[in-house]
Nucleic acid binder design. Structure first.
Lengths: 194, 194
DNA sequence: GTGCTAAGTCAACGATGGTTTACATCACAT
DNA sequence: ATGTGATGTAAACCATCGTTGACTTAGCAC
């Protein structure tokens, strides 16, 4: 088969389709408000395949979180300087660069109530905040700086949520350029190295 | 009946009980993840009374939002100075002063999908941000300052969500005193009058 | 006390949720 | 070409959801 074509039956491809649809719906509407049939329809796939490939709705959600964790690990590791973080976040929020990895931040705010999923989510958030604190030059193990990094992270996530969630202008239709300045100010104020 | 006693049948009282339980559960777990039976049980009240007093689960949610809107109107109106806002928010987040009006901020992040409820929620958020922008001395109608006020609001709400949602330390068990400094920095950086 | 209405209870309804089961069909090795 | 396991489909299952209607009981006027 040539490059663009797809086999009509391809487990890996279906898995990807389900993951993409699930992440989008979980991120946008939350775990409880999202139906497995919603996800399957959006993916153009039969509902029963969710159980087959991910065991359960919870399993699919965990897989989404793991996906975000992996992508986020790559993203932030390459951000050696703290200066880059605000721009990265502004870009992520604006949805410009999000074609590749959309809804990353949003998903980190979504709770399913499941123990294992919460562990994964918490792990991602913690390591994210720790890397920010480290990049800011705060001494490792310094609670005050870590707290500030976590607050900065909370701010970014809150921003993501309100932008996706409300039509509050001018916030809702602000572009990357509009967001960058305030976000930089926010990070500079919270983190020493910023 | 003496002071502390209650009648066993008191419509106004049961309405209050339902509102209190509903606000807590909606705020903590979101709209979709909250069951009318959960609310009724926590309120110690029969499920059917939700339909009687609030017509529907949606109606109860709207009533919760309206309640928060009223309380928040009073709270922020008396905050003549912007300096007071960070302290008020820190206190609200810490749950100290929240005995009276708990879960106010959190509920503003919860979406039910219902049109009318979303209108109410958006209205509260907008007027909140506008008052903050005004208190910061930004000229009325200035989009840049309003945007920054909305970003500050998003930050506060994100903080509320992560604190109620995760066990990420040291954020999760930070006290009002620990939060106040960073929040002040955040507001000062975002708003001109701060 | 007696009756009447407001307040609360109980059980069921239809709808929808996640999941499973039995079956059909495709892809590939032989 | 053909059999076999992987992949996808269709339908149903059972629990739970929000909601409703018929019934009981408390509170209060008279």
């Amino acid at each position: 088969m040539t490059a663009g074509e797809q086999r009509r039956r391809d487990a890996a491809s279906t898995r990807r389709l389900l993951l993409r649809a699930a992440r989008r719906r979980f991120a946008q509407h939350g775990y409880a408000a999202t139906t497995v049939r919603d996800i399957a329809d959006e993916a153009g796939v039969n509902v029963a395949l969710i159980s087959r490939y991910f065991a359960s709705k919870e399993g699919l959600f965990e897989a989404c979180l793991r996906g975000v964790g992996d992508e986020l690990g790559d993203t932030v590791r390459s951000d050696v300087g703290l200066d880059q973080v605000p721009r990265t976040i502004a870009r992520q929020l604006s949805g410009q660069h999000a074609g590749e990895h959309p809804d990353q931040l949003l998903l980190l705010l979504r709770s399913s109530g499941d123990e294992r999923a919460e562990q994964i989510r918490l792990g991602i958030l913690r390591s994210f905040a720790e890397r920010m604190a480290a990049a800011a030059g705060g001494p490792a193990g310094d609670d005050a700086h870590l707290l500030r990094a976590q607050i900065a992270l909370s701010a970014a996530l809150g921003l993501a949520l309100l932008r996706s969630n409300t039509t509050m202008e001018p916030l809702a239709s602000a572009r990357e350029d509009d967001l960058l300045g305030p976000i930089e100010d926010l990070f500079h104020a919270l983190l020493p190295g910023g």
